[in-house]
Design a protein around this nucleic acid. Sequence first.
DNA 1: ATAACGAATGATAATCACTATCGATACAAT
DNA 2: ATTGTATCGATAGTGATTATCATTCGTTAT
Lengths: 128, 128
Amino acid sequence: MQKLTAQRQAILDMINRFDKHWDADEIAYALKEEGISIGIATVYRGLAALADQGLIESIQLADKKRYERADKSHHDHLVCTGCGSIEEFCEPQIESLQDKVAEERGFKIEGHQLLLFGLCKTCKAEES
Amino acid sequence: MQKLTAQRQAILDMINRFDKHWDADEIAYALKEEGISIGIATVYRGLAALADQGLIESIQLADKKRYERADKSHHDHLVCTGCGSIEEFCEPQIESLQDKVAEERGFKIEGHQLLLFGLCKTCKAEES
DNA sequence: ATAACGAATGATAATCACTATCGATACAAT
DNA sequence: ATTGTATCGATAGTGATTATCATTCGTTAT
């Protein structure tokens, strides 16, 4: 049984306080800035436990896992290959098409991940 | 300028011969089985070069990159969390919805990846 | 209270996929 | 033949994540 310890509470608070996509190092650094020092292994375990309990959400990028608040409706992500920023979008029609595809094949969906890669508005404008 | 060397040709042949999703180690092992021994770094570089030239395609899973034939129409993937098998599907409507979302936000799409995780037909049946 | 048990912590070693380095080699153009 | 560019292969390095393990925390049973 998973416990919501002081360390995990601190991680959760940090993620809930800012609307961004955190990796483990960023969490550890941000906590240290506030005088809360947590071992990096504990940060990894804490993030996994919190995601397990549905208190935060995760997206798996190619190089690392990032975590965000869970108190939002489901959404997918636009990842800018220029500046690394991550935007969110919600498109229920895509979800229902996914369900349709899965059903046609007898596949039981447990989860999905849709990433759109490209240039965000700002980076697109900066292109010559 | 990229060259299609003997090593890269061997990798390409192997991928074209079987309809599956290969990782670098699998390629190296399969080639060794046929008496063709290639350094693992060369396999990684070869796969990257071939994908770069559009001769093969890649999908990025959480843990590793996998490569497949490129002589098929565009498709996305169903990844079975039970047996690790990978199915493919094609849903043009999802693609056009993605384009719509991107356009609405001034985002210039360079690529995308849609993974559906869950249980394939076989693994679903095996569940009690 | 306190003993006992399960879970978490934190420092650090280990793992794993992948990339960088570098001397050697292949091949094409001069 | 010489020069140049790209590749090769062995191996060291990288970076994110996980495993190990002795210690500590919290809770429950005595």
